[in-house]
Design a protein around this nucleic acid. Structure first.
Length: 615
DNA sequence: AGAGATCATG
């Protein structure tokens, strides 16, 4: 074939091999180019590099760059773009310097857009502002709307939506990309009013901008608002033509812990034919795990054909949070066998699993393996898990060593966790020492004060108890009011501590009283140590009696169909008395009760809890 | 003649 027709044909093939992510085809075409001597003929240096980059073959792309004798602006912007999209965007910076200093290539709009993208990926507003200054100082460039869009995105991601807006207003011809970047900027920074206002002004709305708006709401903590928007989008008949919006909105049902909503979305996923999409599958696994249905989570996981590190990690963390340590660890081994390399999040999951199952050796081994086998630097979260592992199982001295020698500054919660373990294991001397240290840090969390007060009370240090109480009063520290809700089919009902709904008042109270009587026959003694107020013992018991999770469970028992699992979600952690009560109720009424609290899941069945009483 | 900016999961 003559060169004149071979060149465009090969170029088109390369482009499509890259876009469709066919690394083998890219390599084959690369070989063909070498054989035919066309390798260095434009457009192949750039086309080949771009194709490799699209396939995620960054080292190969980098090699091509090094092998190319003539480095022009096109080649530079291709390699810089490749790095700016990769998981190591900072690798773009030395190349950028080389471009300016060694090859003396001046900045153009393409390079600048890529540099701005790099800044945004690095969350470096400093670098972004430098690029912005360069942009403004060059009259030839400063009209480029694409660069402006990239600046809007950069400022938005760096948490500066007002700066983003200033740039946005100067864009001459606003297109979908620029609008979406700005809407996303407002929404993801919690500026809901502005996000909606801008969104309503948009001349034409596509799925991208809907996704940006909805996921921005989720990111800024308004999952409920995001669901309302999703419903509106469906009503407007917007075609769901990609998986982004689905994985986003499924994430909202995880946050809301709404199994019913999650199931409906799962049906939608199946109906639209996205059940084999990996990312949608991953978000479904997480949703089922967070909505307390670990078995359905597992079923979806088993159905994902191509599992990536997120799929595995989601499942490992899910099993761990449900107290199924063996399942989590087995899964981890399977993952390693399948040739998937664990990352930092995976290690948090498995060490957490060990900690909740008292597997000290195994947990320590995993912590060490992180550095030894995978060359990862343990983060604060990993040290927190390790500390938890050691202190729960009574290795208090080792735990204290870790907290004092780890390369991070321990915070209030970390010290409080250690103190709580020392108290549990009756190490009074260590408890007192840590309590004094913790008090000196001027804690902010009300539960820390309760812990301190209890610690000093056990040691008989009444003067200290009084000091803690005084501090609490002065700071007007209040415990976050507890609330719980229970889902019964399509209906869900919310209960606040101490408030019994009028229409069911008698039934709920009567049931709880009957249950308490039955529990006392089985040796139940109320544990009032978590009640903060200075009131009489019987009044404390009365407060416990009306804790929100008990009201929710009672309502669930009264309303649920036989055989159904009672699922309760609580905003704060379950107190130790309620934990005992839930175990007893599960054996009295012979039903499974699942409680999702602020940190984990408790499966109560037959008088036992999956957390093994450590949480 | 090859290069740039918008939405997603743990």
């Amino acid at each position: 074939m003559p060169v004149s027709t071979a060149v465009p044909r090969l170029a088109a093939l390369l482009r499509s091999a890259g876009l469709r992510r066919f690394p083998a085809l890219c390599r084959q075409l690369h070989a063909q180019l070498l054989k035919s001597g066309l390798r260095h003929l434009p457009p192949f240096p750039v086309a080949l590099l771009t194709a490799y980059a699209h396939c995620g073959l960054l080292p190969a792309a980098h090699n091509l760059f090094d092998e190319t004798p003539h480095r022009d602006p096109f080649l530079y912007s291709a390699i810089l773009a490749a790095f700016s999209h990769s998981d190591r965007p900072s690798d773009a910076l030395p190349l950028f310097c080389q471009m300016l200093a060694v090859d003396r290539i001046p900045l153009d709009g393409f390079i600048l857009a890529t540099l701005v993208k790099t800044s945004s990926r690095l969350a470096s507003i400093r670098l972004g502002r430098q690029a912005h200054a360069q942009f403004l100082s060059s009259p030839l460039l400063s009209g480029d709307d694409v660069v402006k869009s990239s600046l809007v995105d950069m400022y938005s991601r760096c948490g500066a939506p007002d700066d983003a807006r200033k740039v946005f207003d100067t864009i001459l011809h606003k297109n979908c990309v620029s609008w979406t970047a700005m809407v996303s900027g407002y929404a993801s920074n919690g500026r809901k009013v502005e996000a909606l206002e801008l969104f309503r002004q948009m001349p034409e709305k596509n799925v991208f901008v809907w996704t940006a708006l909805i996921s921005g709401f989720i990111q800024s903590g308004d999952s409920f608002g995001s669901v309302k928007l999703f419903v509106e989008m469906r009503r407007e008949g917007v075609q769901i033509e990609d998986s982004f919006i689905l994985s986003s909105i499924i994430g909202a049902s995880s946050h809301l812990a709404s199994l019913e909503l999650g199931k409906q979305l799962h049906c939608l996923v199946v109906g639209l034919g996205y059940e084999s999409s990996m990312i949608v599958g991953n978000s479904l696994v997480d949703m089922y795990a967070k909505c307390s249905d670990i078995y359905s989570a597992r079923a979806v996981f088993e159905g994902i054909l191509a599992r990536d590190i997120v799929s595995w990690t989601t499942m490992v963390v899910g099993e761990a949070q449900h107290g199924r340590a063996e399942a989590a660890l087995t899964l981890f081994d399977e993952m390693v066998l399948a040739g998937v390399k664990p990352n930092e999040v995976t290690f948090v999951g498995v060490i957490y699993a060990c900690s909740h199952a008292g597997l000290v050796q195994r947990g320590r081994g995993l912590f060490d393996s992180m550095t030894r086998d995978y060359g990862m630097k343990p983060l604060l979260q990993h040290y927190t898990c390790l500390l938890d592992l050691l202190s729960r199982s009574g290795h208090l001295s080792d735990a204290e060593d870790v907290i004092r020698t780890m390369p991070y500054e321990p915070d209030e919660a970390t010290w409080a966790a250690l103190l709580s373990s020392c108290k549990k294991h009756g190490d009074t001397q260590r408890s007192n020492r840590i309590a004094d240290h913790l008090l000196a840090l001027k804690p902010r969390d009300p539960s820390t004060y309760i812990l301190l007060s209890n610690t000093y009370a056990i040691a008989g240090k009444w003067g200290h108890v009084a000091t803690v109480r005084r501090l609490m009063a002065n700071m007007e520290i209040r415990k976050e009011p507890g609330y719980s809700w229970v889902e019964l089919g399509k209906e869900s009902c919310l209960f606040r501590a101490g408030e019994v709904p009028h229409n069911m008042r008698n039934e709920i109270l009567e049931l709880l009283e009957r249950l308490v009587m039955e529990m006392k026959k089985r040796g139940y003694v109320p544990d009032t140590s978590s009640v903060m107020h200075d009131v009489e013992e019987h009044e404390k018991e009365q407060q416990l009696f009306l804790h929100s999770e008990r009201l929710a469970v009672a309502y669930g028992i009264l309303k649920s169909v036989p055989g159904a699992v009672i699922r309760v979600v609580k905003n704060i952690r379950v107190c130790s008395d309620c934990h005992t009560v839930m175990k007893l109720i599960s054996s009295i009424i012979r039903k499974e009760i699942v409680v999702r609290d602020a940190t984990r899941f408790h499966h109560f069945e037959g008088g036992k809890c999956s957390c093994g009483d450590f949480w």
